[in-house]
């Protein structure tokens, strides 16, 4: 009987744990999707360019196809005549082609998912995404490190993928003793309070007085 109750409790526990894990996974997916950079300005500029250039080309081509003898797009006639004499090897043509390749690569890079806007926070609501600016995370960690007695200057770098946060602190003491551990402890406590979705590892570099 006791074994049956324990088994049932274990099954319910597994079920609750599974549901919570599933919710956290969905929350993580939602946060990643929501906080992905939108590239609105790049997309808006590109859409405007595509519409303008393709529209002008369509109007010009239709005018030629219909045999109207008109060039509705200003400057099109001169440019089209110039292309009759301009060779592919001309430096201007090559520069334009190089610019096209570069612009294309920039657009392809912009289409990549990229890193999230800010540091996503941990949560279990699949329709809720929390985010903290990277700059604010650095500032709050620096604030925590500055609270350790003897620390006079702190710079925080990151978070970088694979590296995490790097805290560079200076103490006014000549003997570093366990100050680095105290700084690490203070920073890690503050990091837990910030509750990032993926807590970055913390590296502390301490410099002390040399005179």
């Amino acid at each position: 009987m006791l074994t049956g109750v324990t088994m049932a409790g274990s099954l319910v526990g597994d079920r609750i744990g599974g549901t919570r894990g599933d919710a956290e996974r969905r929350a993580r997916r939602f946060a990643t999707r929501e906080l992905r950079p939108r590239r609105t300005m790049v997309a808006l500029t590109t859409a405007l360019g595509v519409t303008g250039i393709a529209g002008a080309a369509a109007v010009e081509l239709l005018a030629v196809a219909l045999g109207t003898g008109l060039h509705p797009v200003p400057g099109a006639e001169e440019n089209l005549s110039r292309l009759r004499t301009l060779p592919w090897g001309d430096p201007r043509v090559r520069a334009a082609a190089g610019g096209m390749v570069l612009a294309g690569l920039v657009l392809l890079a912009a289409a990549l998912p990229g890193r999230t806007r800010g540091v996503p926070l941990a949560g279990a609501d699949p329709c809720l995404a929390g985010v903290l600016r990277r700059r604010d995370l650095r500032r709050t960690l620096a604030d925590a490190a500055r609270g350790v007695p003897g620390i006079v200057r702190v710079r925080v770098w990151g978070p970088w993928p694979g590296v995490g946060m790097v805290v560079v602190a200076s103490t006014r003491f000549r003997n570093r003793a366990n100050i680095a551990e105290l700084v690490r402890g203070a920073v890690e406590v503050r990091l837990r309070r910030a509750a990032p979705l993926v807590p970055p590892p913390v590296t502390v570099r301490l410099t002390c007085r040399r005179d």
Partner: peptide
């Protein structure tokens, strides 16, 4: 919105490369 961006980028880079090759 990333698919049109990628498509435009690919077409632009492809045309540029073709022009360089022709040169």
């Amino acid at each position: 919105m990333r698919i049109p961006l990628a498509a435009t980028g690919a077409v632009l880079a492809g045309c540029g490369l073709l022009a360089l090759r022709l040169g």
